[in-house]
Design a protein around this nucleic acid. Sequence first.
DNA 1: ACCAAATATCTTAGTCTCTAAGATTTTTCT
DNA 2: AGAAAAATCTTAGAGACTAAGATATTTGGT
Lengths: 181, 181
Amino acid sequence: MSVSSDLPSRAELLREMLWAGRQMSTSTIMLHQAVADRLGLHPTDHKCADLLHINGPMTAGELADLTGLTTGAITGVIDRLEAADFVRREDDPDDRRRVIVRVVPKSLHRVGRLFQSLAAAMVELCGHYTDRELATILDFMTRSREVARQETMKLRQTGPSRKREASGVRRRRPAGPRRVG
Amino acid sequence: MSVSSDLPSRAELLREMLWAGRQMSTSTIMLHQAVADRLGLHPTDHKCADLLHINGPMTAGELADLTGLTTGAITGVIDRLEAADFVRREDDPDDRRRVIVRVVPKSLHRVGRLFQSLAAAMVELCGHYTDRELATILDFMTRSREVARQETMKLRQTGPSRKREASGVRRRRPAGPRRVG
DNA sequence: ACCAAATATCTTAGTCTCTAAGATTTTTCT
DNA sequence: AGAAAAATCTTAGAGACTAAGATATTTGGT
């Protein structure tokens, strides 16, 4: 590739990439919030539902770790999501203290409808690219996601205001499930 | 390109794109929250600061429209951001009712430091691609952002729980600035 | 020029979420 | 078996957000 004037230099390209990434991330945040509003969910609840959708069923504690919320907050989140019939609590057969949270399959349709227009627009957008180009973009997205995840963990590790100790160390003493047995 | 077995079909590619987009958007949300925590900001405040950084200075009302928050909430957001020295309120010389919110340039360094590691990781990631590929990816990101913005507006228009009337129609009567004159 | 309506922001009361800490049940370890 | 650890729930208090009202300024009609 050229090294001089009319085409953007590599450095210029990298700068643009960073800026575009920042812009896109902000737009993503806004979209996420708009979806949450439409679903009648608090952004936090929507975020949790999303995590459950992407990562599959998990315990309340795992959800707390993933989100950085306290277990108390998570109890509330699950209560609200369950009331709205987005998720269900299930008993863990291996550990009666645990609660497994699972997305209600039917609720995916409700969410999916909202994303139909978005999905259509994205498919239309993809139409502008060749298979090869899409493969490259896909690769980039996958790797970017991994970068984002690692940076998130880094920020949490050293951060001053993390809400829950680094998994395994508790400040004092947590406490009890709701089931009677 | 192949049409049969070993390489992913176009349809498969599109499905993967949608899924990757969803995954990335969720990771983005998590990252954004982690950054906000590190800055000691509420996610909403961080979002607003981000919008101001990306779109430049704007009035409190414009910020309310962009975020979908009420003007009352925005007052609080600006108060907190101003107290943390991230933004400053300025008088609009053309309309004494208005308040222009501007990012404090110095605060960008504070935020920038947090993003250094991320930026480095992204630059490293970009190293895997040719200029041509990066240009394609950049193009895709730019267009995706536009799609996201339009979908966000669509969702807001028809949504049941929008918090502020569609700019120009108010339920009753808002009210007064803090300046004395 | 004047007055009413519209506009921009701020303020307040009440609702709801989140954290911190404690409570309760179950599991693990010695 | 008994003590410590772990998972979730509960509660009290802090704080963000909405709805509605308050106040200052601008706009538009007459």
